[in-house]
């Protein structure tokens, strides 16, 4: 009987040690998995302060000043039709002036009241002629400005015609009124004339490439 009791106890002890070791491996593995998983998710789940003030442009930083969209009124300034010959819409073009220099001339968006410009512009011919290499910055379809409080960028919009062009309006954007990211503006006033809506995007030049791609895909 004593031998049987000892044998049972010894067997139980062996099983206990064996099972305990297996459990220890599993528990440590599970705990490690939880810790590494939560560490990996941490940057995505950082709480944002509720009611926090919107971010402002940082002085001294360089920003891409991207005009995403311009909407014009149905009639040209003065109440006349955009196209004096037919009934087609305006061929929208714009330029940006900063520190008394024209820093950007847009491509033309023909026969539309809403012109839309993507942030990414791939000039295949230029890439081919430069032996297939290009700088990522060359693909960004926007000029760079440096933010200094008190400065402004002037937007001039016109309807491009073969014979002359009709000015659609001008807007001066005070940089301190703008925010990083998308800015939707509904200008009013005498100088704005036929400009009804402007969507601007200000992107910090130091934006990491994946975020820049996200911004580009967010049209």
């Amino acid at each position: 009987m004593a031998v049987g009791r000892y044998s049972l106890r010894s067997r139980a002890s062996r099983w206990l040690w064996a099972a305990g070791t297996v459990l220890l491996v599993c528990a440590t593995g599970f705990a490690t998995w939880r810790v590494t998983r939560s560490a990996a998710l941490a940057p995505q789940t950082q709480p944002t302060a509720a009611g926090a003030a919107p971010p402002r442009l940082a002085p001294g930083h360089d920003y891409y000043f991207h005009v995403k969209l311009i909407e014009l009124a149905e009639k040209a300034p003065g109440g006349k039709a955009w196209d004096s010959v037919g009934d087609s819409g305006p061929d929208i073009c714009f330029s940006l002036t900063w520190r008394n220099n024209v820093i950007w001339n847009s491509s033309e968006k023909p026969n539309t009241l809403i012109g839309n410009w993507d942030l990414l512009k791939v000039d295949v011919r230029q890439i081919i002629t430069s032996s297939g290499q290009t700088d990522l910055n060359d693909l960004v379809n926007a000029p760079l400005i440096s933010y200094v409080p008190g400065e402004a960028v002037e937007l001039k919009v016109w309807d491009e015609d073969t014979v002359g062009s009709d000015e659609a309006g001008k807007i001066s954007f005070k940089l301190e009124d703008l925010r990083p990211g998308e800015n939707i503006l509904n200008p009013s006033g005498e100088r704005a004339k036929a400009i009804r809506r402007v969507v601007l995007s200000l992107i910090d030049r130091r934006t990491p490439v994946p975020e820049l791609v996200n911004t580009i895909s967010n049209r």
């Binding site: 220890l24 491996v25 599993c26 440590t28 593995g29 599970f30 705990a31 590494t36």
Partner: peptide, 9 residues
Amino acid sequence: AVLLGSGLA
């Protein structure tokens, strides 16, 4: 055992 569990996961 502890090292094994953490090393595997």
